[in-house]
Structures are given as structure tokens and as C-alpha cells.
Amino acid sequence: MNIVITSIVILGAIGCLSAVILYFVAKKFKVEQDDRIDQIVEVLPGANCGGCGFAGCQGFATACVKAGSLENKFCPVGGAPVMQKVGSILGVEASEVEPMVAVVRCNGTCANRPKTNTYDGAKNCRIAASHYAGETACGYGCLGFGDCAAACNCGAIKVNPETGIVEIDEELCVGCGACAKACPHNVIEIRKKGLKGRRVYVGCVNKDKGAVARKACKAACIGCGKCEKTCPFGAIKVENNVAYIDFNVCKLCRKCVVECPTGAIKDVNFPTPPVKPAPKPVEEKKTVEEAKPVEPKVEEVKVEEVKVEEVRIEEVKTDTLDNGKKPDAVEQSLF
């Protein structure tokens, strides 16, 4: 009995002593962990895709808290709503970041770019690219074995067996850039999604000289420089025989689309067809510019109905905008 009591006392004493030591050690070496990191991790999507440029969501949260601001930080998966939540946790305003989307800069469909040989190795773009130029005469374009599709966490990329190149579903794409990193030919680019998803870009990355590029693919950029001369905003640069449109400068006027002799410049999500004969591009530009402010749409519809009074309508338009009584004035003038 004595032994039992002794051991209980001794063990109890050791326990108390350890507790005291642990208490002071814990006080002394306390790791300051900001609660906000965990809160931010909670609101992040948890995809751990690395699209933000940090090592997973935890890394992104830590970086946000450390910096104390959201400058140059954006979660492409969660987008603006998530960034607002992160901002409210940190007590700062989330800066507006334009949504981005992946774009395949290759027009090399089976029809445009005929096969010259058959690849028989492992079906992997990176392996094929390290072995040779590819199944066609173009050594720069999409190889079509789907490394990007495998890298995509959102299921936004699919290889179209009919065209032989990959296609991106812009509804699903979050612009994280995993596909662009996976592509050995750097065919995929992350570009601004643009107003209403409207984008103009050069669908070719072939650096060969014009004749060689054209021989390999009917829709190749031949580096002729017509688009560079046509562009009124200086958004297009031709370097190494291939044109590039800077999406920060481009105003989506589509003059270059009309001008391109091979049709290498693509425009997407525009309501009107892009290619018009030479004299018309001025008019085309108008419609695009009108598309930016939201109000004038009412008039646009009516132009079709009453063609003769076109001039008058335009006069009315300026008046109405000044007076601020738009609907009434328009109706009056028309009836």
C-alpha cells in the first residue's frame, strides 16, 4: 500500500513539475499564428492549383496576410467573389482584376495543316516535342496529344478528334495557367477574357518564314506585317515572323481580322460576322464602339425599322442624352 502511495505522490510531483515547465516553455516559445490565415483558407476554393503563383491555397493565404494587401494577388479559380471575401477578412478592398481565359494559338486543324507522318511513340506532347517537330510540317503548333487537358483541373480542355487540336471551354476555364505551363510548344496563352468574352488574337505561333509556314499550314501567320500597319492602336507587333496582339492595348476594332491574308487572326464571341469587303471596316468599327456603352441599343434596333430617318435619329440621340429623358424623346421623334 505504501508503495502505491509513494509512486502516486512521486508521479504526481513529476507531473506537476512538468506542467509548470511546459507552461513556461509554451509561453516563451509561442508561435504567433494569425487566425486570419485559417479564415482565408476556409473561403478559398481549395483546388491547390497554383494558378495564383503560390504553393497551394495555404501559401496564398499566408502571402495575403503577410502582405496585408491584395495587390497583385488573385485567385483565378474563385475569381472576384472569393477575393472580396478575402478582402473583408483582411479589412482591405479587393482590387478589380479582369477575368482571364486560356486561348489556343493554333489554327492547325487537320484541314489546314495536313499530316506528313505518323507519330508512334507514347501519346504525350512533351515526349513527341522532345523527339521531333510533330506529325505535320509545322514544328510550332498544337501537337494534339492533350498534355494540357491532363493538366487542367477544371475539365475545360478537350482534344477534338475531328480537328486534331485542343479546344477550350471558356465557361469552365478559370485562367489558372496550368495548361500554358504544360504545353511544350507554348501554344496556349492566358489572355484577358474581354468584354462579353470578345477577344481578337493571332491563332498561330509559327516562327518560320512566310513561305515555309504557309506550306505547312493554310492558316499560318506568315509575318507579312499587314495587321501591324493596319492597327490604329499599335497593339500588334510582328517579331520572328509571327504577329502578336497585346490584349492590354487592343480595342477590338477587328481591322486586322479583315486584313489578314491567311485568316490567322481569330475573333471570338462577336455578334456580327468578322470578314467584310475592304470598304466597310469603318462602319464595322462603329458598331463595335457602340457596343461598349449600354444605352444606345434601343436606337440600334430602330434603325433597322426606319431606314430613311437615320440622320434624324442621330440628332435625337445627342439631344436625348443631354436632356436625360431618353425613352420619351425617341418615341416622339419616331412617331
Binding site: 511513340g121 507514347a122 504525350n124 512533351r126 515526349i127 522532345s130
Partner: peptide
């Protein structure tokens, strides 16, 4: 299986 194709890629 295309063993060497993948190993070569890894080696590079």
C-alpha cells in the same frame, strides 16, 4: 509499354 519514352522524358 512505351517505357523508354517516359524514362527519357524524366531523365531530360
Amino acid at each position: 509499354r512505351p517505357l523508354l519514352d517516359y524514362i527519357r522524358m524524366g531523365k531530360q
